[in-house]
């Protein structure tokens, strides 16, 4: 009996695992050679260097575009004064609350609409219509209805992630590979197992993609809201510095906001590898 199996494995050359056991396959990531990697690191550094040198050589007007070294020094200065930490904190808190406010109901309503026909019929056209409204144009309305307070800020930030997650989740639930549903049905899978063992894992990759989009939208929303009504946060720092023509502070705010965004992107990639080990 075991002879048969071994013979099978030998005979079927194609039957070897595609990946070795010690190194389980990761998400499809492009692999660069060492030369390519060097270039990918070198190019931003070269750009910064060119910027710095042109600023020093007065090839560009430093009143418009301060040199990177000046921006870095400004960041350091703002940190020491203690203002920057408060701005970062306010922005991050706003961003996270808005994100959660948007993502949680978006996933919930999207899943309901994906699973059941009646909610889909009732809400589908409404969602399609609202999705096309330029969201920032709603801000005055929100301010009137909710008031000039932190809650209306978070509501505005939540809108982008909300619609994105709603549409992504609904689509993902409706597009679960029919074969998976057939398997579940043929094995008489109960509701709890259907959701935990089949539907949820099947939609997780799409949810992570939606979350990545939502992250960008929430950050954009946060900075925009802070431009418009904020009295704190990185958006306020960037905009306020610009109005008083302190461009190095404005640039410093921009750089820190970029770092904050990159940090959350990296966390999401880490979360994705954790949640989708099968990819």
């Amino acid at each position: 009996m075991s002879d048969d199996v071994d013979a099978d494995k030998l005979a079927a050359g194609a039957d070897k695992p595609a990946v070795s056991p010690v190194q389980p396959a990761k998400a499809p990531h492009e692999v660069f050679s060492s030369g390519e990697r060097l270039v990918s690191i070198a190019s931003p550094i070269l750009l910064l260097l060119a910027w710095e040198l042109s600023a020093r050589a007065h090839l560009i007007d430093v009143r418009i575009l301060p040199a990177p070294s000046v921006v870095l020094a400004t960041i350091w200065e703002l940190l020491r004064e203690g203002q920057l930490a408060g701005d970062v904190r306010d922005t991050v808190v706003r961003f996270l609350i808005g994100l959660v406010f948007g993502v949680v109901p978006g996933v919930f309503i999207g899943a309901t609409m994906g699973l059941f026909r009646w909610p889909r019929a009732a809400l589908g056209p409404l969602v399609a219509m609202l999705y096309n409204v330029p969201r920032i144009a709603l801000f005055p309305l929100v301010l009137i209805l909710v008031g000039l307070n932190e809650f209306s800020n978070e509501l505005m930030i939540a809108l982008g992630p909300f619609f994105t997650m709603l549409i992504t989740t609904m689509g993902a639930v409706m597009n679960v590979e029919p074969a998976y549903r057939d398997v579940a049905r043929n094995f008489n899978t109960g509701t709890r197992h259907l959701y935990t063992l089949v539907v949820l894992p099947a939609i997780t990759p799409a949810l992570m993609d939606g979350l990545r989009l939502s992250l960008g939208l929430a950050l954009l929303g946060t900075i925009t809201v802070e431009f418009l009504v904020g009295d704190s946060g990185l958006g306020h720092l960037i905009w306020n510095s610009w109005t008083v023509l302190s461009l190095k502070q404005s640039m410093a705010g921009l750089i820190v906001a970029t770092i904050v965004g990159a940090f959350f992107y990296a966390s999401l990639s880490w979360l994705e590898r954790l949640l989708i080990p099968w990819r």
């Binding site: 009996m1 199996v5 071994d6 099978d8 494995k9 079927a12 194609a14 039957d15 070897k16 695992p17 595609a18 990946v19 056991p21 389980p24 396959a25 080990p277 099968w278 990819r279």
Partner: peptide, 20 residues
């Protein structure tokens, strides 16, 4: 075991060939 898959029980399907 009978199907020669026992050494691969911790694998995900993506890591297997079509026959497996």
């Amino acid at each position: 075991r009978q199907l020669g898959l026992i050494d691969f029980e911790r694998y995900f399907p993506r890591q297997l060939s079509g026959g497996m």
